[in-house]
Nucleic acid binder design. Structure first.
Lengths: 335, 335
DNA sequence: CTGAAAGCGCTTACAG
DNA sequence: CTGAAAGCGCTTACAG
């Protein structure tokens, strides 16, 4: 049986490489992992590398994890939220930055009915990061699975405190500030009836109200819309008749729905009703009238996330300071 | 040192459970994995389960993978496309169905600059599925990593054939058919200038043209828009002046951009220009005028995907027939 | 009906 | 400068 038969038949292991290079299995590991503190002659090193390339050697990940206790995998647990426009850029940047550091980012979308086995029970991650806080059940499972590093953890995260990693706080503040500058004092806050988002809705609406109070304005009137029916029109009519003139929306889709309803009711936007969205998604530019919206740098947030994760994995102190979201308000035609 | 000290110190292993239950390590495995062909007394079984629950035992995934050669992980490789609205439902359903069968779905978002290590080099999956075809490099890496099962594979997938798993073919056909029924014969096809989507754009536009030809209509005039500027207006003006009256769009965002441009130009929709979108995303309902669009059952596609994956993993023949996308056209105000 | 033992493919002190 | 050996925590024939 020739070498090529053997490689076709079963996966190449470190033993195969050692045999081909005429060294021990340990030496193969030292060379390929660039283990510090080992002095390997240049000739041996070259022979090992040549053999591993020639045979197409890829270390068995499971064996590495078992032997070393480290997996270089970071699991990101995404709550059961709809995927929003900016999230993909966030993910791309985060996984690129982690990849450059030798880590793989695995995204675990948590779904409505919940998995029987959690992903970290399967993949032995070095670090598990939740965008939303973990439940006590999650924490027990994480502990039982030997996951030593978790974000957010108790030292960073108080359960009552809403998560800010996707710029949930600055956006609402800027929305209120902007509407106030444009002369609006009685404000509404529009969301879709999307139960999966309730924690974010609460956080953003709360931030808007806090800032309104600081400006001496009343709390924003929170209303749920449903984009699938015309009940939206009634909500908007109610706002208008009640004397509200400025609406902050949870995202651009909601803002578009409010604007659509206003147009159907014969209201002028922004003269009769000013509307500001959130996320600066494509629809904000596409809509007629174009939507004022909150823009933030999701790629920078992704890089910041990666930096946080790497600090945690390496046991270094977490970088201080706010995430570099660079939240700004883009004014267009709707305000 | 008490038991609780020990469990706090290090992860519970099968040996700990065996000791606590007074059986051998093998028996623990037999009970917990429900290994067929073993006859274990009910009392022993109960003792093992009780001990494993009490100690909070979770098997070490890496050790299981190494020993058994199977990981129960399916990696889904997602090309570098923007996430579209329906995709989340697809993912949710697919991962739920796989989870019920004891598998974990890990989604690997491929990013623009490519990872140095591919995810399957890290997690030892039983199956890797690509939404787009794999490159020769990918295939070499998959082979070297010992991934035995891949979808799509050579028997299923011819490189020239576009992927249909997200309903890329039926939608364009229905768009053309519908526009024709509404009396439109000279048609345009609108896409955003999004290079990451080029393969899907080509597939959908090609399908639309094929169906147009079957109906005796000329090919659809393909134009790229950019939602960030007003060049869209010029494209739409050109279409109108050139006598085109019906536009099929790659997705609802593009359709909304065409409608917006038409409105700015003083055209009536649908009288002067009829526009039909694709995906039936929220914006289709929200827009004024509301957009006709292509709806498909992304959750059913997700379940179908899971069934395909499980067949492949278990070495059963793949289910025959088309994916149950149930593609339909929803007529609203824009046509 | 149950247990002792080999083996999966690595990493990593340790001995030379 | 390099190799023999133990060990990571499981699974799984195999022997009793």
């Amino acid at each position: 049986m020739s070498v090529s038969d053997a490689t076709a038949r079963r996966r190449v292991t470190a033993s195969d490489v050692a045999k081909a290079a005429g060294v021990s299995r340990a030496t193969v590991g030292f060379v390929l992992n660039q283990t510090p503190g080992q002095t390997i002659s240049e000739r041996t090193r070259a022979r090992v590398i040549e053999a591993s390339v020639r045979l197409g050697y890829r270390p068995n990940g499971a064996a590495q994890v078992l032997a070393s206790g480290r997996s270089r995998i970071v699991v990101l647990v995404v709550p059961d939220w709809p995927i929003e426009f900016r999230f993909r850029a966030f993910l791309d940047e985060a996984s690129l930055a982690l990849d450059e550091a030798g880590y793989s980012l695995v995204t675990h979308f948590r779904h409505p009915h919940g998995p029987t086995r959690r992903l970290w029970e399967t993949v032995t991650p070095d670090l598990v990061v939740g965008i939303a806080p973990f439940t006590p059940d999650d924490l027990a499972s994480l502990r039982a699975c030997g996951v030593k590093r978790i974000l957010p953890d108790q030292t960073l995260f108080r359960p009552a405190e809403p998560d800010t990693s996707l710029a949930s706080i600055d956006g609402p503040r800027l929305q209120v500030e902007h509407l106030r500058e444009r002369g609006h004092e009685r404000l509404g806050y529009a969301v879709f009836d999307e139960p999966r988002l309730s924690s974010l809705v609460t956080a953003r609406h709360g931030a808007a109200c806090t800032h309104a109070a600081a400006l001496g304005l009343p709390a924003l009137d929170l209303r749920c819309l449903d984009y699938r029916d015309r009940a939206t029109d009634e909500v908007v009519r109610g706002w208008h008749e009640g004397g509200l003139t400025g609406i902050a929306a949870y995202n651009d889709d909601v803002a578009a729905a409010v604007v659509g309803a206003a147009l159907r009711l014969g209201l002028r936007v922004p003269e009769d009703l000013a509307v500001v969205g959130h996320d600066d998604s494509p629809i904000a530019t596409i809509m007629v009238p174009a939507l004022s919206s909150i823009h933030f740098d999701s790629a920078a947030l992704g890089r910041h996330f990666a930096a946080l994760a790497l600090s945690r994995v390496n046991g270094r102190p977490l970088p201080a300071g706010d995430p570099p979201a660079n939240v700004t308000l883009i004014q267009r035609e709707s305000t």
